[in-house]
Simulated assay, not measured.
Amino acid sequence: MIEEATPDVSGFTTFCDDIRFEVDGKVTMVGCYHGEMTINGGFPSTLAKFAMSIIFTQKRELFEPVLKLHVFLPGDPENEPGIVVDVDSQIDITKTDRPRIGARANLVLSPLTINAPGVIKVRIARQGRYHNVGSLIVAESSSTEPPPRS
């Protein structure tokens, strides 16, 4: 089998209800979504808390230390993200021999209002180009029954 080369830049996002940082350095992600979030009760919908853990890596020889994280919520115009975050890796690459350099951003939004069904899109802006690091479909529940109570 032929193995594909690793892209120059790559990344991914884990979408969840909360991110918790433990004393021993571990990270716990609570209520992870698998490709789709279903909203019960219609739009707009306000979530008490919503989180994203974003990982982005670059080849060492192409390393760009300052990036922008753009999050587009359903209904945002194509060129106007609802959330923009500066990501500064703060890594001195002269002190590491790793072939890839990574950056991590954990966003916990509380509260978050989603105005319409659609897609939450996470992009890294790097050297004038967007890199897709995650998408989550936001759909309205087709059920007319209220969600179960525990």
Results as ranks from 00 to 15, higher is better:
residue 141 S to Q: 06
residue 57 T to Q: 08
residue 29 M to D: 02
residue 7 P to R: 09
residue 98 R to N: 07
residue 106 N to Y: 00
residue 89 S to K: 03
residue 32 C to L: 10
residue 5 A to T: 15
residue 29 M to K: 01
residue 57 T to N: 07
residue 70 H to W: 11
residue 14 T to L: 09
residue 16 C to H: 03
residue 39 I to W: 05
residue 44 P to T: 11
residue 130 Y to T: 00
residue 115 N to R: 07
residue 123 R to P: 08
residue 72 F to Y: 03
residue 12 F to D: 15
residue 120 I to P: 01
residue 38 T to L: 11
residue 88 D to W: 06
residue 120 I to Y: 08
residue 149 R to Q: 08
residue 13 T to P: 11
residue 10 S to K: 05
residue 100 R to S: 03
residue 121 K to H: 05
residue 85 V to R: 08
residue 73 L to T: 01
residue 122 V to A: 10
residue 150 S to Y: 07
residue 34 H to Y: 14
residue 46 T to P: 10
residue 31 G to S: 02
residue 10 S to V: 04
residue 102 G to F: 04
residue 103 A to T: 02
residue 49 K to M: 12
residue 127 Q to Y: 04
residue 55 I to Y: 10
residue 112 L to R: 12
residue 5 A to G: 12
residue 127 Q to A: 05
residue 90 Q to S: 14
residue 73 L to G: 05
residue 57 T to F: 06
residue 108 V to S: 04
residue 99 P to G: 10
residue 4 E to M: 14
residue 125 A to K: 05
residue 97 D to W: 09
residue 118 G to Y: 13
residue 108 V to Y: 05
residue 57 T to R: 09
residue 89 S to H: 00
residue 81 P to K: 10
residue 58 Q to F: 07
residue 123 R to Y: 04
residue 146 P to I: 07
residue 91 I to D: 13
residue 141 S to A: 13
residue 25 G to L: 02
residue 95 K to G: 02
residue 103 A to S: 15
residue 41 G to W: 01
residue 116 A to W: 01
residue 120 I to N: 07
residue 13 T to K: 06
residue 112 L to N: 11
residue 87 V to F: 05
residue 85 V to Y: 10
residue 94 T to C: 09
residue 127 Q to P: 09
residue 100 R to P: 10
residue 69 L to P: 04
residue 123 R to C: 04
residue 63 F to C: 14
residue 95 K to P: 01
residue 9 V to T: 03
residue 14 T to V: 15
residue 30 V to G: 02
residue 77 P to M: 12
residue 69 L to A: 06
residue 27 V to I: 15
residue 83 I to E: 12
residue 116 A to P: 07
residue 55 I to F: 13
residue 81 P to T: 08
residue 114 I to T: 14
residue 109 L to K: 10
residue 96 T to K: 00
residue 104 R to F: 10
residue 88 D to Q: 09
residue 32 C to D: 04
residue 110 S to E: 14
residue 150 S to P: 15
residue 55 I to D: 09
residue 104 R to H: 10
residue 17 D to W: 09
residue 9 V to F: 15
residue 73 L to M: 09
residue 55 I to W: 14
residue 35 G to K: 04
residue 77 P to W: 02
residue 34 H to S: 12
residue 7 P to S: 02
residue 80 E to D: 11
residue 21 F to A: 05
residue 60 R to K: 15
residue 139 A to G: 13
residue 3 E to L: 15
residue 108 V to C: 01
